[in-house]
Write a protein that binds this DNA or RNA. Sequence first.
DNA 1: CGCCAGGTGCTGA
DNA 2: TCAGCACATGGC
Length: 296
Amino acid sequence: MITLHAPDFRLDACLTSGQTFRWMAHGDWWHGLIGRHVVRVRQEGEMLSYEASEALSAEQVRAYFALDVDLPGLLRQIDVDMQVHAAIQRFRGLRVLRQDAWETLASFICASFNNITRIEGMIERLCQACGDPAALAGFRTFIFPDAETLAGVPERRLRALGLGYRAPYLRAAARRVADGRLPLAHLREVDYPTAKRALLACEGVGDKVADCVALFGCAQDAAFPIDVWMERVLRYYFRHRKITRAVAHDYAQRHFGPYAGWAQQYLYHDVRHQRATPPPTGRHASRAMTREAITI
DNA sequence: CGCCAGGTGCTGA
DNA sequence: TCAGCACATGGC
């Protein structure tokens, strides 16, 4: 077992905030994969411990959990209004993970117009059907199938896994990655608009999915995915008027700046968490936040 | 059973 | 540019 120092970090928030779909809680441990490595991780205070099925360096783990990011400095940049401030206070330590770009692209194609529970099931069946088996002690799982593999899977087989109309989109994206038309590794090196434009070339990838892949899979910290939840959150900055996602996205970019994606992750996790555990009275808090929103 | 889900592509104004 | 619509599926 290897232990690293992980200040300003909250593992459970990272793994339950809708940016990753395969981690499972097992007592104090979380079981999952980092790339092709089967891993279990556990947080105790400022310490993060892990075990892996094969050599997995501390640097790879640090990179995956974005522990190299100066979180206090970053939060200072996005802590620009009452609403995001409250989310930061509640979930300080939440970080945007640095996941594999292909797995992120494939996962978020499956995520479109879908709910998280079913997304998890679809991805798990996809891995069982097309991925290589792997294990860590008693934990057995399957590696996420690579693009070359999925490019050769017939659409009807993907439909049989429950992907529905997303099946042809996933197959086409796999082809595009496998044959090099979409150079995913390169998208970490270019600027955000360039990365997003490249992702949008895939069928079944619109603004929201492209932003998720850019943010979670390509280290594009400015990317700002807007789904139905974020649309509700952002409406609040416009005095609850109806707004198009394009307007909301443009506003968020200017309002939060180069780390807008991290603000998005805090707001998203916060609104989802509020639904799960509603606050006791909320009256004063919501009035204060409304007043703040109006002055923006 | 009806509504909803980390949307996208297409169409017609 | 933008609203309106179809699209598969299953969780709740």
